[in-house]
Structures are given as C-alpha cells and as structure tokens.
Design a protein around this nucleic acid. Structure first.
Lengths: 351, 351
DNA sequence: ATCACTTGTGGGAGCGCTCCCACACTACCT
DNA sequence: AGGTAGTGTGGGAGCGCTCCCACAAGTGAT
C-alpha cells in the first residue's frame, strides 16, 4: 500500500499533474499550454512554461498516443530489399526531402523495408496495429497489394508515381509526359529525324506517359510516328541492350535514341558502340533520371532530371494534410490530391 | 474475413476485453496468452487464440507501452548527415546485420540521423522522452556527448568502436590490433623490410590499436620499429596523399605501406605513382576496410576486412540482453559487455 | 437589472493495456 | 482431518495523457 504514494513524486519522470501542481494550475491547463492552445492567458502560460522548464518535463508519448489515438509517426515504406535502397540515389534524395520537410514538425519518420515476404507480413501486422498515422509509399509496382491494404485499414497514404490515371491514393509524380517531350524536342532541334524510343516497363504508368510524350512531341513537330521505332524495354541495362539490338536490326537508319532510364541508355550505348556507331556523331542518346551513371558515361549522357528531393517534400505535405483531414471523414473531397512536378533536361555530350 | 462490427461496440478495433468476452475468460488470461505466459491451460489458450483470430485482434501498442513502460523499439543512431550514410557501404552492411537479427523479435528499428545540430537537439528531446528502449550508436567520435547523455538517461546502449580501452558502454568492435598485425605480417612474409604505416585519426581508439598492432608485428618478427615510418593520417584520401609525400621525402627507401583505411591507401597510391614507383613491384600497398574502392583500384588493393554485418548482429544481441537486464538494477555486472570480432586479410595484387 | 455570449480554467472520465493480489481448485503430504 | 504447496484464473488499480463538460468571471446589449 506504500507502493504508489512514493513512486509518483520522487521516482521517474515528472508528469502533467506534477507540472500542474508546481504551476498552481489544473491538469487541463498544462495540457493546453503543451499543445499550444490559444485559449490560455499569457500569465498562466508563462507560469506553466516555467514549471515545465524547472521540472524538465517531457510529455509521455505512449500516454498521449493512447488518449488521443494518434502516434505522431509516419512510415516511409520501401518495397525493396535494403540493398537496392542503398544502391539507388533515388531513395537517398527522397529521404533527404522527406527528412527536411518533416523536421519542421513533431512527426517521427520510420523507415520500413518490405522486400521479402517475411518483411511484408511484418509490415502488414505493423499497419494493422495502426502504429503510424500515415504512410509514404515509394516505388510501388502496379500489382502491389499494399495500397489497397492501406485503403482498407483507412490509413492515410501518399504514393510516389500513381499506378494509373485513376489512382485513388494521393500521389506525387514528376511530369513524365513533359520530360519525354523535352527530350524528343531537344533531339529534333539537333536535327535528328529518326528518333527511336526504348520504353520502360509498360506496366508502370510513368513509362506509358513517357511514350505518350514521345509520340506527341513528334506529332506536334509535324513528324509522323513510326510505331516500329518504339521498342519495349523494362528500365534495366539488359533490356536496353536487347531493345537497341532489335532497333538496329529493323531500323539501321536510326539517328537518335531516347531511353526511358539512364541504365537503359547505358545498355543501348554499349550495343551502339559494338555496332560501330559513334555517339553522338552517328546516333544521339538521351536518358532519363539524371543519375550518377549519366555523368560517368562516356560520353556523358544527356538526361531528364526529376526533382526527387522536392517530390519527397511534396509527399510529406500531402500526407500531413491528409492526416489533418481525417476528422471530417465524410468530406473526402477529390481536391488537390495529385501533385506533378516539372522535370528538367540536362544536356551533355551524348546528344 | 468478416472483420467485426457484430460484437464491437462502436466499430473500432477489438480490445483485450472484447476478446476475453468472446473467449469466455477474464482480461488477465487473454493478456497472458498474448504474451506467451506458460501459466495458462492448453484448453484456455486454444479458446483465446480462436477468439483472437475471429476478431482479428491486434494489441494496441500505445496502451501496452503506457502500462508496461516500454516501447518495443530501439534506435540506430547515425551521427552523420544522410549523405555520408548512403555513401559508405559500412552503414548499409551494418543495417543489414541489425535488421536480420531484429527480425527474429518483436522489436521495431528506428533509423535516426543526427548530423546537424538541429537534428541532434531533436534526438536529445527524443531520448529524453524515452521513446526507445535502447540505442545503437555507430561511428561515434571520441568527444561526442551522446554516449554520456544516454548513460545519464539510463537508456541501454551499445556502441560500435569503443572510445577507449575503458569504454563504459557495451561495445562491439573488430579486432583492429589483430587486423593490423595480419597486414604487417603479410608484408613481412612477402619479403618487405621497410614497411611504413599511415595511421587513421589518432583520436579514434581503433586507429591507435592499429598502430599498436603494426608495432608489435614488427617487433615480434625481430625488426626494430622506426618511429619515423609511422606517419599520422586521418582516414581520408587527402590525408593519405599528404602522408605518403612526407614518407617519400624522409624515407625514399620505403618498400611497403600499410594504410589505416582504403581511401587513405588510394591517396597514397596516387602519390606513389606520381613519384614513379610501381605497385607492388617497388612499393607494396595494403589498406583497411575492404571497401568497394579496394576492388576497383588499379591494381586491386589488398585490404583487411571487418565483418560489419556480423558486428551489427552482435550489437543487437548485446543491446537486447542489456534491455532484458534492466530489471535487477543493482546487478549491473561488468560481464561480457565487450565483443571483438576477428578480421580477415583479403589479398589482391597490390602486395 | 437581466440575459447572452465569450474567455479562461479545473477536473472527471476514459483510452487499452500490464501488474499483481485474491481466490478457487487440486494434489500430496502429515 | 487439517495443512501446505502449487496451478489457473478473474478483475481491481493504475500508467499519463486528451477530451470535454461545467463553471466562474468578465463584457456588452437590452
């Protein structure tokens, strides 16, 4: 029976109640000050803040989470193994943007890898326990069940790269269509007339939009689109090699190639060189992503850059808005839930 | 599949109490089953498990954290900016080891960067709120206040790379002394007699131990140690260049160099080449870390490899033990709190 | 003077768990 | 017969917050 009377006062960390006693106010008032409510007089606020300072009070997150039913944490879910995460600068930039935007807030960021089946099962459990207020989904494949799981659990989520034009989740993307256009227009302005396109994996919506941009750029410049010059790839280096070989076989007169990714362009470049074509003299080459590989290729690769860091920031903005919105459950307006950011063509010696 | 809505009062997630009602037992019994207590009869356990399944019950982490005063989360604190984190394979390997070991448990891993002052302030706040049960500290500088903060807050912590021989925190390290010895012994066995050492930053304990290993290997082989052949560096490439230039000036007869890191070795290699020395013909070169750069140098660099992934696993093991230990507060035995893992010399063409 | 607001404040009632004490029951001694 | 363990089990008492209702005191219109 003596066990509790002592414990609170002398023992561990100070509680709200102790701060209240010290400041000579009620528990509710301290809570209001801590949470920045405007309905507190200046004098009271000062008294409470002094007590907080003196006692070194730090709110107990668990208690807050339990009472308020929120966690003040969001997760960045990477449906890839750690290895790829570290290999691709995409994630590093994204994380930088997300981190910088989040540092303005009280929110905590969790990084969760869901590459293996086991990790995915763990993630599902984690989400079911509602241990985060929202989720950032990057690099999601079209058939991934994760987005639907999130919808079902009613967890706010933002996806980078919508899965289709009708993506129900809030999303942030770069302007794939415009980026592709700028690449093709650049090649046209350099006097190239037989411009081929090696696509990305066409199950990815962004890859489709790049094809659309390619077609429209040609059409608007008065060229007719030769569908034979569009060769399907899959974003990989090997895919680039295969597609380029096929293009050279069917269309030996090709004088420019726009590849849907830098690594694809790298693969295409190898095949071109092996076939004795000089870059850019015989065939101009343009990639996409402006990754490190673009700068290190020989010759350095012209490429379409996406503002990845900015995309990370935009995702956070959307997600925080979504989380704040979740009170009026009915009013899920289809407002500004899709953000598209402009790309930029970085010209180098390959074109 | 039928989620709930029948028994649940107002549509939220099922609670312990609801599971108890469904299984026809008391709240305490369900808690015991959930937490794997052995003091439950098989029949009761089965009934509870069935109810959990039917209701799709998932424990509320916040409530658990509040009642039990633990979070089931640990943090991996990286006192570096994100950029370096991604640049160095060290962290990637470490994270892999940590993640794999942790996936056996219910623990959640948080990745926290504390490169800037602002991030550090945030981290301090975070730790003061006791939002994690323990902390993994990697790549800590000797004068970092973080370890002491953790001690003061009584948060279990494990450090990679002790700050001194008297490191009070539990620590995991690779055998810097033995690694250095093996490098020097290898050079001796290749018939080299004038072996120089470019050190790491000597404020780092591990760098000192490598110097010790260098000295003892020579001494034990019957050579006398020429202190002039020990040139201070700082783990960087530029430091390697500077130190090598100095060595060549003072000791033109040097026929082997053991550098405290691969990048240092790379810097030294440049200077050697510029001075017209061939590697390994005129001067043999050995690095430390066995990083990607070692494989990509010309000629490929012999290097001492540290088992980083395994170090990550060992850190988790130590930390979990420390966390489990914290109940008998008095019995802070100075048991096996220091783990040292063996290194391995990877021989390549530079020696 | 009354009424109707507004502003600031105190504190009760939970949130969903874990901990632990009390209480059956059983089994096996004396 | 009574004692003395040991095993399962139920449920009270919190953990430290937020939410919200009640209420005092002030302000202005009637």
């Amino acid at each position: 029976m003596a066990s509790h009377g002592v414990r609170g006062r002398s023992g561990g960390r100070p509680t709200l109640e102790e701060v209240a006693a010290r400041a000579g106010v009620g528990r509710g008032t301290v809570s209001r000050v801590i949470n920045g409510s405007p309905r507190v007089s200046d004098a009271t606020r000062a008294a409470v803040e002094a007590a907080v300072e003196e006692l070194g009070y730090v709110p107990n997150t668990a208690a807050r989470a339990l009472a308020a039913n929120r966690t003040d944490a969001i997760a960045l879910v990477v449906p890839e193994p750690e290895t790829r995460f570290f290999a691709e600068p995409y994630f590093s930039d994204m994380l930088k943007g997300v981190g910088s935007e989040l540092s303005e807030t009280e929110m905590q960021l969790l990084l969760i890898f869901a590459g293996s089946d086991r990790e995915r099962a763990r993630l599902a459990q984690y989400l079911a326990a509602h241990r985060v207020d929202g989720v950032l989904l990057v690099s999601v494949h079209a058939d991934d069940p994760l987005p639907d799981l999130l919808t079902q659990l009613e967890i706010p989520a933002v996806i980078s790269g919508p899965r289709s034009a009708a993506e129900p989740l809030a999303s942030v993307d770069s302007d794939n269509y415009g980026g592709a256009r700028s690449a093709v227009e650049h090649l046209l302005s350099r006097g190239r007339g037989r411009i081929a396109h090696i696509t990305g994996h066409l199950a990815v919506y962004g890859a489709q939009r790049r094809v659309d941009g390619y077609r429209d750029a040609l059409r608007d410049a008065g060229h007719e689109v030769d569908e034979g010059l569009i060769e399907p790839g899959d974003f990989t280096e090997e895919g680039g090699r295969r597609a380029m070989a096929e293009l050279l076989r069917r269309h030996p007169d090709v004088d420019a190639v726009f590849a849907a990714s830098d690594v694809t362009a790298a693969g295409a470049g190898q095949v071109l060189r092996e076939a004795g074509r000089r870059i850019p003299d015989d065939v101009a080459l343009v990639g996409y992503d402006d990754s490190a590989i673009a700068r290190h290729m020989e010759p350095p690769l012209t490429s379409v850059r996406q503002p990845i860091e900015e995309m990370g920031r935009a995702m956070i903005d959307l997600l925080l808005a979504e989380i704040a919105d979740r009170r009026p459950v009915a009013s899920r307006g289809l407002g500004r839930h899709q953000v598209v950011l402009a790309t930029e063509l970085v010209e180098r010696r390959s074109s």
